[in-house]
Design a protein around this nucleic acid. Structure first.
Length: 364
DNA sequence: AATAACAACAACCGCCGACGT
DNA sequence: CACGTCGGCGGTTGTTGTTAT
């Protein structure tokens, strides 16, 4: 049995909203609220509109404190980072950008930001006109299947690689450092340690002289030169930590990577060239799928064995102490050095336990 | 100037999960 | 448990203004 329609399709108006309709809806909701029932609302207001249409109009256009257009580079950066991390979950992305709606961000991504970041591959059509090679433009053949093109994982893969492995001096992305990954203090330490673990030939791959400079790594290298001064005040203690152990990377030489929703999403390490695109794509999906709740992290911490510190446990410690104060961060930072093997103070050696990102840490 | 193509934005559609009966 | 209703969400289409030919 099919679902009953939410309204009488024959008797509702569709299409663009008229100014008087907007005024009626706005005035009513500001005075009486929505009453918790959008379906009944249009009758009360006196509008011949579907309740869902009213809801959409209010949320996307009439609601107070909405911003339209004029996305900043900071917002671009957040959208891009989150899209790589979690895909097209527009409502979650919108929640990180005050005054923006999911619809706005979705439109912005689809019409502008995606092209800006991924670039435009141009080709000529039959009339010799330059057109953008997008889903809407396939002059020489049938459009590809949706499964081939409308695939956010593919876009995320491209962005992911653009972020890290395929520097292109001519690209918009490469020439806008504001779009490069932000380095979170936790991640910064992580990356610095990774550089220390890396054999010299791997580090060399990321230096400009060798022509394979990852923007993320460059950012890290800059950070490496500076004291850790960035505060973590913006980190909501309830923020969901997305963690993943990344099989793409040589974990014997790099530490586990951490993606913190809305703050940073980055990783380092050489990528073996024999991985297929499917493997990489599924790996990126894993990034968004593998998430731990606080309870799960606590469980992991409780199952700690002896002197072995798992990355999950480390993250949970951080999770617990991340109330944004310098004191907490300093404590964590000290703890990090103590637990992680390469002690920057005395240069004591690491006892590496394998590729499961577990290490024996030095006793203080 | 006319037209086609494109870009940007607004709105709709249908699916899905939550919730109440 | 089954069913119906609703709100939320993401994909898609429709509309309008702009640009290129």
């Amino acid at each position: 049995m099919g679902r009953a329609p939410c309204c009488d399709k024959a008797n509702v108006k569709k299409g663009p909203w008229a100014p008087d309709e907007d005024a009626k809806l706005k005035a009513y909701i500001e005075k009486y609220g929505t009453g918790g029932n959008w379906i009944a609302l249009p009758h009360k207001v006196g509008l011949k509109r579907c309740g869902k249409s009213c809801r959409l109009r209010w949320l996307n256009y009439l609601r107070p404190n909405l911003k339209h257009g004029g996305f900043t580079e900071e917002e671009d950066n957040i959208i891009c980072s989150l899209y790589i991390s979690i895909g097209s979950r527009w409502s979650i992305i919108a929640a990180q950008l005050p005054g923006r709606t999911d619809n706005d961000i979705k439109n912005y991504w689809n019409t502008r930001l995606k092209k800006k970041l991924l670039g435009r591959r141009k080709q000529s059509n039959a009339k010799g006109r330059i057109v953008v090679n997008s889903e809407a433009n396939w002059p020489d053949k049938d459009p590809p299947q949706a499964s081939e093109l409308s695939n956010s994982a593919l876009e995320r893969l491209q962005l992911h690689m653009q972020f890290q492995y395929l520097p292109n001096p001519l690209s918009y992305f490469y020439n806008n450092p504001a779009l490069w990954s932000k380095i979170h203090p936790l991640l910064q330490e992580n990356m610095v340690q990774s550089l220390r673990f890396m054999p010299q030939h791997a580090v060399d791959l990321y230096t400009p002289e060798h022509g394979s400079r990852s923007p993320a790594l460059a950012s890290c290298q800059r950070a490496f030169q500076q004291p850790i001064s960035e505060k973590i005040g913006n980190l909501d203690p309830q923020v969901e930590l997305g963690t993943y152990s990344d099989p793409m990377y040589d974990n014997s030489r790099s530490l586990a990577t951490v993606a913190i929703s809305g703050i940073s999403s980055c990783s380092v390490g050489p990528t073996p060239i024999n991985y297929t695109s499917d493997m990489i794509t599924s790996n990126i999906d894993q990034l968004s799928d593998t998430r731990y709740t606080a309870a799960e992290l606590e469980n992991m911490a409780n199952s700690r064995i002896g002197g072995v510190m798992s990355k999950e446990e480390l993250e949970f410690d951080y999770f617990k102490s991340s109330n944004g104060s310098d004191e907490c961060f300093n404590r964590w930072s000290k703890d990090f050095h103590m637990r992680y093997p390469l002690n920057p103070l005395d240069g004591s050696a690491v006892q590496h336990k394998g590729i499961e990102t577990s290490y024996e840490y030095n006793q203080p």
